[in-house]
């Protein structure tokens, strides 16, 4: 493996759009000349059940097909998953792991709940933003906006352009505008420790 590779793990409940986000992000970075790989946790998909998604972003083609064991970034779409040992939000994390959590709580509060020494915790009220902008509690796209506030894999403007490409064939302009707005707001409203 030559060059830098970012490995992201998504924690969510079925229906929150984490699979879409994990795969969309892998697609969105193509425009930047980067390589992406996105996959959901393989298995039956059930609404409301805890699930994981994975994204790898790299400068060179990604060859490995194994699970991500030590994510550099963990994105939590449903904060109640932090209370579940089975959800494994902190599995394989440690010093320097970046957590981005969809919650109205402060990063310090979340950090103490997570209990990962040396972790960098950010929070954002992605569900609130989604309700305001899209009108539905689907926090996936705002969470990508939040991610770009702390990672330079691409700019928010680039993400928005990819988002338009992705959504334009299937959704109305109102939904598209809502999503663009959500991404913008989340990237600005991210709260860091």
């Amino acid at each position: 493996m030559s060059g830098k590779m970012t490995e992201i793990r998504w924690h969510a409940r079925g229906g929150q759009g984490a699979k879409t986000a994990a795969m969309f992000l892998a697609e969105a970075v193509l425009e930047k000349g980067k390589f992406g790989q996105g996959f959901p946790e393989y298995g039956p998909e059930r609404r409301g059940a805890p699930m994981r998604g994975y994204t790898r972003i790299a400068d060179a083609p990604i060859r490995r097909h194994c699970m991500i064991e030590h994510p550099g970034i963990v994105i939590v779409l449903d904060p109640t998953l932090m209370d579940s040992a089975a959800a494994g939000v902190t599995a394989g994390t440690g010093e320097g792991t970046v957590f981005i959590v969809n919650t109205t709580e402060k990063p310090a509060t979340v950090a103490s709940k997570l209990g990962v020494k040396g972790a960098v915790v950010h929070t954002v009220d992605a569900t609130g933003i989604a309700l305001d902008t899209i009108g539905r509690p689907i926090p996936n796209m705002p969470m990508i906006g939040a991610l770009l506030a702390v990672n330079d894999m691409m700019t928010v403007a680039e993400l928005k352009s990819a988002l338009v490409d992705q959504l334009s064939s299937k959704f109305s302009q109102v939904i598209i505008d809502g999503n663009l707005n959500a991404v913008d707001r989340a990237s600005k409203e991210l709260v860091s420790a």
Binding site: E27, G36, F39, P40
Partner: peptide, 9 residues
Amino acid sequence: FIISHTADS
């Protein structure tokens, strides 16, 4: 899944 369901370039 490993190939069938993975977004890849």
